[in-house]
Design a protein around this nucleic acid. Structure first.
Lengths: 236, 236
DNA sequence: CGAGAGCTTTGTGTATACACTGGCCGAGGT
DNA sequence: ACCTCGGCCAGTGTATACACAAAGCTCTCG
């Protein structure tokens, strides 16, 4: 594996997991030394992160981790709605019906197993969501759409960290996904699109509600290796 | 302006204009020498082009300009439909009605002036389309959506070069845009979305028809500076 | 004469050195 | 005491040098 890939993967994980908080300054020499790579591959990693929108050049001389506030989340969900509704529609038209029937079945099982299993249920849920996304990409068979969705999903990882999802919402989300998978399996494009719309509406509502409920002090107590003195945009 | 920006801008223009044909091999040392920059900024430019999907690493040692075939065009238009329908809807809800009323008026004028003006009419048309896209981005006010659309538009430039649009289609396209602008100005989200859908359907149909009509020998006679011996995917 | 192995060559990945720019601090003048 | 100007410094942008890996060619052996 190339050094630039390692640097990218590490920084991506640290930003998504919240170790590198929004506003954290990413100096080239500093990060290169910390990650044990030279400045050249590190710059490539920073460039990719900038293309993803996870970091930005606040001034010509300072690169910072971008912040995500409620407006960003609304914007991301607008794009997500556009792309995933189309994806659901296309998957219903051309996808492998059997694969989505199986997914619908899996969602039904997780709904029973992890209904009140806490962290285990949540992990199983997210693993199944990842499977679903993979199946959706395969069914749509559109590299451009997949690439656009990849960017959205990259940001969604951060959004999920900001919003603690409660067990009730998780159970509902599983049921919504089961319906979407079933609709795709039944080749019902309209139902798949509308069910996706409903699901995203509920997910966005739940996230925004979770944010307003916790306002501040929700970012955890883990010590960030770099201070975050500058804030590009008001957080939350 | 930084050397990497110059290299990116030059390569982007050369790929979009067709000077660098699909399949052309982009060696780092070769291109760095040709563009008068060092390998480091050139690599950054190639990385950005790869993120845009305009170049790809065919093998670990050779970077080539990606090809666009009819299937790619269909895929791009699927994404474009998803994004622009949403954009039209959102612009109708929150956009500046006066700005789109003026755009509708401009489209009406261009329709009269450039109806059979040939190249001049086409240039005026594309300039107005650019204005329209800008107004759409401003109205939607969604950085994530704008970024996704930017990628699509980058590819569209290449698609337009492949497909010669005839004057009749141009006039129809202007009328379709006028309707979209008018619908946004009237805050009729449904009409804006449906008119966008119709426009993109017609545009895609026209492009694909133009492609099948000319099959081969449509790529022009301008001598490419680099031979294109390898073809990642069957062209056209 | 053909096939395989090794060498050469070419090109990328990485590291480091150099130059330039923008900001900060101190000193001097008003 | 405050404002301003000049020099220093930190940090990025770019160039170049080095290392490694793969592909092609040639030489040798079967």
């Amino acid at each position: 594996m190339r050094a630039s890939d390692r640097a990218y993967a590490t920084l991506l994980d640290e930003i998504q997991s919240g170790v590198l908080r929004p506003g954290a300054v990413l100096g080239e020499v500093e990060q290169a030394a910390r990650l044990g790579v030279s400045r050249t591959p590190l710059r490539e990693a920073l460039g990719r992160l900038a293309a993803d929108g996870l970091v930005a050049q606040q001034s010509p001389r300072v690169t910072v981790v971008t912040a995500i506030d409620a407006d960003d989340i609304r914007e991301i969900f607008e794009v997500r709605r556009a792309l995933e509704e189309s994806a659901a529609r296309l998957a219903a038209e051309r996808g492998d019906a059997a694969a989505f029937a199986e997914l619908a079945h899996d969602f039904a099982r997780v709904d029973l197993d992890g209904h009140d299993a806490g962290a285990d249920g949540r992990d199983a849920y997210y693993a199944l969501i990842a499977d679903f996304d993979l199946a959706l990409d395969a069914a749509v068979a559109n590299d451009y759409l997949t690439a656009a969705l990849r960017t959205v999903r990259t940001h969604l990882v951060r959004v999920r960290r900001l919003a603690r999802d409660n067990p009730a919402r998780l159970a509902a989300s599983v049921a919504e996904h089961r319906l979407i998978a079933a609709a795709i399996s039944a080749r019902d494009a309209d139902l798949a699109a509308h069910a996706t719309h409903v699901h995203l509406h509920n997910a966005l509502h739940s996230i925004l509600e979770s944010l307003t409920a916790s306002t501040s002090s929700a970012t955890g107590a883990s010590a960030a290796p770099v201070a975050a003195p500058v804030e590009a945009r008001p957080r939350l």
